[in-house]
């Protein structure tokens, strides 16, 4: 059976997306779920996370010091089953590169909110079928602009508190993501 693949996208791929990637990888693994996780950004590549991001993640027992940023343009988006943006602009950026992936792409907060309406994925359900339910009813204008409610704020070039806040937020959100992806939670 092929593994499901998740891509996480933010602006520079040095703060939010590698932090979310680290949380999600360990939590999916702990839940016994076999996913491939990777991340990318829309600007620049081969950059290391800021020291503040590395230090904050260490307090959660996670090491992102080896991470190096990748450009979204250089990866094959088609191979991913589920894509998370940290903000609405990333969802639109992904759709520009792979329009047919729009229905598989969400801001990470939007995904949790929408998944809560349909419940966790069922074991008999394909990822594609379940995501069709999750995305159902999404209107175009919901993807416009920026939204503090639905975007994870970029801590880049801000103080250590901003990194701590974002890490705490991502810790919580990624737990919710794992809950909805865990098909042993779904009721058949």
């Amino acid at each position: 059976m092929t593994k499901n693949k998740i891509l996480i996208v933010c602006t520079g791929n040095i703060c939010r997306s590698p932090m979310a990637e680290a949380f999600l990888r360990v939590k999916l693994n702990d839940a016994g779920l076999d996913f491939d996780i990777s991340s990318a950004g829309i600007l620049n590549q081969d950059r290391k996370p800021p020291q503040k991001a590395i230090e904050v993640m260490r307090t959660f027992g996670l090491d992102i010091s080896d991470h190096s940023s990748r450009l979204l343009e250089t990866i094959d988006i088609e191979e991913f089953d589920l894509i998370f943006g940290m903000a609405k602009e990333h969802v639109r950026d992904i759709a520009v590169l792979a329009k047919n992936k729009l229905k598989h792409t969400f801001t990470i907060k939007e995904f949790v909110q929408r998944a809560s309406n349909v419940g966790p994925k069922r074991i008999t359900e394909s990822m594609d079928d379940w995501l069709s339910l999750v995305v159902q009813g999404r209107r175009s204008e919901e993807l416009l602009g920026a939204d503090l409610e639905m975007d994870v704020v970029d801590p880049f070039d801000k103080g250590g508190d901003a990194f701590r806040d974002v890490a705490a937020e991502l810790d919580k959100i990624t737990s919710q993501v794992v809950y909805y992806l865990n098909d042993s939670m779904g009721v058949d």
Binding site: V91, R92, A95, K99, L102, S140, L144
Partner: peptide
């Protein structure tokens, strides 16, 4: 243009 394509148009 980018936002419109990003909305799937």
């Amino acid at each position: 243009v980018k936002a419109s394509v990003g909305l799937g148009k």
